[in-house]
């Protein structure tokens, strides 16, 4: 299983889980990073981090370290 912070393409993805129970995972969940949601890495900052993520018509950028709390799978 891949985590969102390790994605280096812009193909559509689906969130499988936000497994960690740290407070940061809770913050991401509040923004809507929840299992079943469709996401896509839309942009990468010039220095490689943070990354910008498209989800349900909104664009939110997070650092790769935090994106790694989110497990994703590719959608065919």
């Amino acid at each position: 299983m891949k985590t969102l912070g390790k994605i280096h393409h812009r193909k559509p993805l689906e969130i499988v889980s936000v497994a960690s129970d740290c407070g940061r995972a809770g913050r991401l969940a509040a923004l809507g990073f929840l299992p079943g949601r469709k996401v896509r890495v839309s942009r990468v900052a010039p220095l490689g981090d943070p990354i910008s993520i498209e989800m349900e018509g909104q664009e939110i950028s997070v650092r790769r370290a935090e994106a790694n709390l989110i497990e994703v799978k590719e959608v065919k």
């Binding site: 936000v18 995972a25 809770g26 969940a29 809507g32 929840l34 018509g57």
Partner: peptide
Amino acid sequence: MNPASAEAVLHYRHLEALLDGVIGGDGRV
């Protein structure tokens, strides 16, 4: 359920029902 995300999961479930049919269109960026 994961206690860190349980609140968000449950509220969003509650909101799905409340917002059903309220928003149309595709909402693209």
